[in-house]
Every structure is written in C-alpha cells, then in structure tokens.
Amino acid sequence: MDSYIRFENVSKYYKMGEQLIIAIEKINFEIEKGEFVVIVGPSGAGKTTLLNILGGMDVCNEGQIWLDGEQISAYNKKQLTRYRRYDVGFVFQFYNLVQNLTAKENVELASEICRESLPAEQVLDQVGLKDRMQNFPAQLSGGEQQRVSIARALAKEPKILLCDEPTGALDYRTGKAILKLLQDTCRQTGKTVIVITHNSAITAMADRVIRVKNGTVSKVTLNKNPTPVEEIEW
C-alpha cells in the first residue's frame, strides 16, 4: 500500500536575476497517516520551501507529490486553493491571526469556508481557551495566540496539520505546551501532524524525523518509541 504522503524526486529552483538558486533537489520521503513528523534542518536548508510546496502555497519544478492518493504536484492554481481550503491546516510561526477578530471569530473565519468544520467553541475548548474566546488577539499572550492558530487549523478538519516553527516566537515553557498540544492532537485525533523546525531537540518526540540539509533529505529516522514532550529538554 502506498504511503499517505510521498515525495518523489521533488526539486524547486528560484531564479534570481541570471542566477539559478536550487532550493530543494530530488527530495524523496514518505509519511504514513497519523504520524507526528518533524522536519528538521538548519536555516536555508529548504525546510520552508518544502512546507510551501506541501502546503500548496508554491509548486515544485520537478518530481511528484502524493497525498492520500492525490497528486498535489499536478494541481492547478484553483485546485491548490481548494486543497488548502479543505485538506491543509496551517500553524504559523507568528500565529497570523486577524487582529480585528476575536479568538472565536478567528477560528470561525477558517471554519466558515469549510464544508465539514468543527464548532469553534469545541475546538477552542480543546486547545484550552474556553475562557478567552471573546478576546481579541492583542489581548492574548503568545502561547494563547498560537493555540487560537492551532484551533483555527483544526476547525477545518484538515487531512494534515502543517506547523511552521510553531514555537519559534514562544518562550521555552509555552513552546513546550504548544508542542504537547500538537502531539496530543495527533495522538487523539489521528491527524498527520508535520512540524517544521530548526530545533533538533524536538525530534525526539516525533514518530518520523526527516532531516534536511542543503536542499536534500539527508536522513529519515523512524522512532519506535517517541519521547513525551515533557521529558524533552533544550
């Protein structure tokens, strides 16, 4: 049986003037459904490009990307939008909440455009923000904002949850709490969660670790027994 997510020889170039910059080259990996995946690598290794392409925000120049039997790499612009709309949940490093909407409204912003979304209250309860639902983002702490962001992503009931440095703008403790939330979500809902980070310490909690270096996958590790977040230190 095919894997849930599969990258086959995926390459992406950017043209900067006359120079051709290779962002990623011939990347191959597979991810199974329900896995908590960490993609790790130093800055400029091509993590973000990978995320962009997997998240349907960008397209690759070569290779094929498969998700749940669909070839994402063959989608046109409109199909990509639909893909983002229904299949992908994003968690941004800087939360990207709409400042002018309350926590609940921010969640509803996403759920409103979906067909089968979860009620905002339920999702916010799930991420532990039951009491802060009516607050505006500016009235929330960073961790709380990130929880709203996660709730917004989860409310859409996506196939995969893509998290870009979810702890990058958070302090250690809060970061850990967010990671826990993500891991719990993965375990409880069976969603495929992909976390992109430069922090190698996090790899311990993943089911699958994909290491990226200079635009290629240097190593894919499978953890039989992932360490709970609480036990990880960095």
Partner: peptide
C-alpha cells in the same frame, strides 16, 4: 499584506 496572505493560505479564493 500579511492578513491577505494568511487568508489566501487559509484557502480563500481570489474573489473572496
């Protein structure tokens, strides 16, 4: 700009 980019990522069509 960022808000627009975000809602685009969230899957809003151009028209929306």
């Amino acid at each position: 700009q960022k808000e627009i980019a975000t809602i685009k990522v969230l899957g809003f069509y151009d028209r929306e």
